[in-house]
Each structure stands twice: as C-alpha cells, then as structure tokens.
C-alpha cells in the first residue's frame, strides 16, 4: 500500500510538470490549430536561463527565496519574449497557409532553438548548484519532500489562476472567443493578433515556470531536454482534450500517474515479459488509444472536424 501511495505521489509531481507544459500546447492549439513543436524547447530555454541565474547568484549570499524569484522572473521574461517573437516571425505569416506549413515551421523552430541553446550554454549537462536542501516528511506512508509538495501546489495554484483568467476576465473571454471563431471575434472588435500574441505570452510564461521546476526537481539542464518533455506534455493535452484548459491539467496529472503506475507494476502484471523499459511506450500508447477511441479527449467536446 505504501508503495502504491508513493507511486501516486511520484505521478502527481511528474504530472504537475506535464500539466504546466501541456497548458502551453493546449492554448496554442485551441487558438491556432497548430501543434507548437517548439514549446518543449521554450521550456528548455526557461530551464537553462534559470540555471544561469542560479549559478550567478548561488554564491552571492542573497536569500534563497529572492534568488528563486529572480530566476523565475528572468526565465519568464526571456521565454515570453521568445514565444511572442516566434509567433510573430514564424507562425503569423503562415496563418492562412495549408496546415502542413506551420507544422513544419514549428519543427524548424524547435531545431533552431535547440542548437542556439547549444551555442549559448554549450552541450554539457548543467548541474543545479546546491541551493535548496529539501526536507522529507511522510504522508500516508509515502515519502514526500517539501520541494515536491511545493511543485505540486504551485502548479495547482498557477493553473487555478489561469483558469480564472480565462473564464472570468475580459481578455480571457476574448481569448475564448478567438478560439471559437477568429473572424467573428474580429468583427466583435477583438484584436486577434494581440490575443494570439497574448496566448503565446501566457503559454511561454507557464513554460518558464515548468522549466524552473524541472531544474529544481531533477537538478539538471541540457539543451536537448525539451523535445521529449514536449511530446509527453502534448500527449497529456490530447488525453485531457486539446484546446481545453481543464483538460490539460487533468491530462497532465493522469499521464504522470499512468507512467508511474505502469513502470511500477507492468512487470508484475505481465509476468516479467514487459518491464519498465517500455515506459515510453505507455505514453504513446495512451496517445494512440485516446486519438483512435475518443479523439476529443476526456474533457473535450466531440467535434467531427478535429478527428
């Protein structure tokens, strides 16, 4: 039982990160109908910017919360600027092109970001300086560190804030309107371009936060860390129902838990035939099954056009 609870805890922490990244995918997909392959790499940039700040300030004697805040701030500023400029330069001119064009552009941007990062930060694995020393406590027989708890709570808080922003504020309403029908939203006096920029701004900001979390939790950063994370997060977004903010949160958490439980128990369940080596297969299998059986995802609305 302890083991089971522990696996759920593991899954929730991993899922929090997936969920934050998935939000970026889901928002962009909802509004542009585009899989922003570069989103995972924006997370990477956020992580590496954060690491640079940590390295620069780790010996400065500043209080730890301030260092954290500065790192998050720097990462957010860089990622937001990056996200908005990518949309402006690479995606906006292609808004009316056939669907394949922006998708391939996104792959190109992803490669560009990775190798630009390799130039800036080198291709070494960058360790996190000793900044935090997490303390451990026990919940229901499972070990949880305060860092894990903080990641989970912060992710939930950010997501709740985003949900409020999208459902309750004027700008959020404009975003939803743009998502439903760009032309009509434009006629209603909404500046479509501004709203799309804003979507990228928010999505990239969340990516920065997720990047910092990855760095704090795993203690490691690398220029190629974003792609697989991005794929998993996209899977989470699809699982929850792409274009749906609540779906992304649910999908992220679920995918985290599925991965944890699958790699923890599949060996026993299949008599040792499948082991934890098939962990990544589960994520993709979930993706295929959801798309084939329920393309609108768990919380999405059934829509013939997307499927």
């Amino acid at each position: 039982m302890d083991i089971f609870v522990q696996q759920i805890v593991n899954g929730l922490v991993l899922g929090s990160i997936y969920a934050l990244v998935a939000l970026g995918y889901t928002m962009v997909y909802g509004i542009l109908g585009l899989i922003n392959f570069a989103h995972g790499d924006i997370v990477m940039v956020g992580a590496l910017v954060g690491l640079s700040v940590f390295h620069a300030l780790s010996g400065s004697g500043l209080p730890v919360p301030l260092v954290l805040l500065l790192a998050v701030g720097a990462a957010m500023v860089v990622c937001m600027a990056l996200g908005v400029s990518i949309e402006r330069l690479a995606y906006r001119p292609l808004r009316h092109a056939p669907r394949l064009a922006p998708l391939i552009t996104a792959i190109g941007v992803s490669i560009l970001l990775q190798y630009s990062a390799a130039l800036v930060w080198s291709k070494q694995y960058i360790p996190m300086p000793e900044l935090l020393s997490p303390t451990r406590f026990t919940v229901l027989g499972a070990h949880v560190t305060d860092l894990q708890a903080a990641i989970f709570l912060l992710a939930c808080g950010v997501m709740a804030g985003l949900y409020w922003f999208i459902t309750k504020t004027r700008v959020g309403t404009a975003m939803r309107a743009t998502e439903q029908n760009k032309e009509v939203a434009g006629l209603m006096g909404i500046d479509i371009n501004r709203i799309i920029s804003l979507t990228f701004l928010v999505g990239s900001g969340l990516a920065a936060v997720a990047g910092i979390m990855v760095v704090l939790y795993y203690g490691i950063g690398h220029y190629s860390m974003g792609f697989i994370l991005g794929l998993k997060a996209f899977t989470a977004a699809v699982l929850g129902g792409i274009g749906n903010v609540r779906g992304a949160m649910l999908g992220g958490m679920l995918l985290g838990i599925i991965e944890s439980l699958a790699s923890g128990y599949i060996g026993d369940l299949t008599g040792g035939f499948f082991g934890s080596n098939y962990r990544d297969v589960f994520a993709f299998l979930v993706l295929v099954l959801v798309l084939v059986l329920r393309p609108s995802g768990l919380l999405g609305q059934a829509s013939g056009e997307r499927a």
Binding site: Y29, L34, F234, G275, V281, V292
Partner: peptide, 28 residues
C-alpha cells in the same frame, strides 16, 4: 488501419508515436 479517421496534426503525432514504439521494441 486505426489512424484512418485522423487527419493532419493528429495523424502526425500518432505516426510519431508509432515510430518511437517500433524503436523501443527493437531496443527491448
């Protein structure tokens, strides 16, 4: 066969997953 109903981006992602699954199986 299972992906016939999908189009565009979704198909792209499923085929991507398929490619990775084949590689993981070959590796394991």
């Amino acid at each position: 066969a299972p992906t016939l109903r999908l189009r565009g981006d979704y198909l792209a992602i499923v085929t991507l997953g398929f490619g990775e699954i084949i590689r993981i199986f070959l590796n394991n």
